[in-house]
């Protein structure tokens, strides 16, 4: 008997008390929690939460100008740019494409990365990336020390349940809430460990917020 079959057999005999006729869905799961709720404007809420976790936030009516300006302010010259990020956005900075895929050491030598995102959760200040064309593969937003993320208003939801509804589990997902941090020393939060130490968010787009 394989280990697989043995484990499954042990599971079944451990569950002898569960009626054989019970289907998994027969066991009730109360879902009285809120899927969404009312509250402050989602953009306002998002800004508050991002700032609380030490990200820099700007509201930017003009994307290209705002991206170029942020890069200059940050002194970032060579920038990883996923295929969906237009080179014009980067202004004077050089767009380094991930084609062929950049090696980790090459990524490490770049000044930063500019991406879009898939969904943003206002209540928790969380940006979710799904490796779409304007985000690229996961390493791009991990190795460079500076991440500039462009968020459209229509990508912002208020709660975690609303975000999961919009996401596709078949895609690799990265949830980002502020710059990298640790609470391992005396359980106090300190920003800046292995992931990007600077997270800058540009909120843009004329489309009215859906929150």
């Amino acid at each position: 008997m394989s280990s697989r079959d043995q484990i499954l057999a042990r599971v079944r005999s451990a569950l002898a008390d569960v009626p054989r006729t019970e289907d998994p869905e027969d066991f009730p799961v109360p879902r009285d929690y809120e899927r969404t709720r009312s509250g402050p404007d989602v953009v306002e809420l998002l800004v508050d939460r991002l700032v609380d976790y030490k990200a820099t936030v700007h509201e930017a009516p003009e994307v290209a100008a705002a991206v170029a300006e942020a890069l200059v302010r940050h002194g970032a010259r060579r920038i990883a740019a996923p295929s969906g990020i237009p080179a014009e956005w980067l202004g004077e900075a050089e767009a380094v494409r991930d084609d062929p895929p950049l090696r980790p050491a090459e990524l490490d030598a770049l000044d930063g990365v500019v991406t879009g995102c898939a969904v943003v959760i206002a209540e928790t200040g969380t940006i979710v990336l799904d490796a779409g064309p304007d985000q690229g593969r996961r390493a791009l937003t991990l190795v460079p020390d500076y991440h500039l993320c462009v968020v459209r208003r229509d990508q912002i939801v208020r709660t975690v349940p609303e975000a999961l509804e919009r996401l596709d589990p078949a895609r690799p997902l990265t949830w980002i809430s502020g710059p990298s941090a640790t609470s391992d020393i005396e359980l106090n939060r300190v920003e800046g460990v292995h992931g990007p130490r600077t997270l800058e968010v540009l909120i843009t787009g004329e489309i009215a917020s859906t929150g």
Binding site: I121, R138, A170, T174, S177, A181, R189
Partner: peptide
């Protein structure tokens, strides 16, 4: 004790 931890990875 955070609203959300800084990073979560989900892969299939």
């Amino acid at each position: 004790g955070e609203r959300m931890n800084p990073y979560t990875s989900m892969w299939t």
